[in-house]
Amino acid sequence: MKDTLLEIKDLNVIYKTYEGTVAAVNGVDFALDRGKTLGLVGESGAGKTTTALSIMGLVPSPPGIIQRGRVTFAGQDLLTLPEKDMKKIRGNRISMIFQDPMTSLNPVLSVGLQISEALVAHQNLSEAEAERKAAEMLEKVQIPGARYREYPHEFSGGMRQRVVIAMALACNPRLIIADEPTTALDVTIQAQVLELMRSLKEEFATAMIMITHDLGVVGEVCDDVAVMYAGRIVEMGSLDQIFGNAMHPYTLGLFRCIPDIEEESSTIHPIEGLMPEPLDLPKGCPFHPRCPQCMEVCRQVVPEACEDNGHRVLCHLFGGGERRA
């Protein structure tokens, strides 16, 4: 039985700029079950963050316009929800962790206050109760509750990110969207934060969308993986399917271009060329100019998704479950 928490259907987001229209998200479809973690992988400009912002109702407008699509969260369509109702969801039932903990915390408010703010706003707690709960949350992320009244600059980068995690979890949300939460951290600190996120996710039974460019991080925390390229999900499946049996040439390329730390000598095979210009996406499959297996049809026609056992791929090489090439 499926227990779907979030479902995104045919999401299309554009940014209208002076130079033209940027097609940031072009028909994204996915579903996320309760308690599961989905990794959203891709390089800069792939549309990962815009997808996340659409869920939160935070696409900056102007220039952003959600042209089409549905974002259904626990049975409600978030895109048609009035702002007043969206406010009750944002930070309460869906919360977000941003990349840079220095800019996502307010430097002139104590960390405790920033955590309790959400509790006062969403859970009708008195200030005293909220303060007690916030101190508890700090302890949960392994920061002494006594540091409640300290300011962000008094914490290290790893601790700041843990404060942000405490804020995100304070109202016990059903969904957390983490946008490159460990990218700004050193590796040993990243390991601490990932471990913490993993254990808290279990404890709070929260579903998570983990946006990252690092396939290693995906391997550590995700159940499912969606690979994005030029505003589309080009491949999606379980961690086993994507890591064990990647099919899309772009996904394969991503794996082949990172040096293997466990091999004695590694060769890397770059994906040639550059990300397409978002103002001027190529005709047909957006990956075709860089694809080593490009065929004539790829230049003309956008591939349809084909799916087998939950493993979905958007590529002309595959269709009807059979490999054509």
Binding site: V187, T188, Q190, A191, L194, G219, I258, I261
Partner: peptide, 13 residues
């Protein structure tokens, strides 16, 4: 510790 902290993109590690 540094080595152990590197996330590796492989299955069943």
């Amino acid at each position: 510790a540094l080595l152990a902290a590197v996330p590796i993109p492989k299955l069943n590690r």
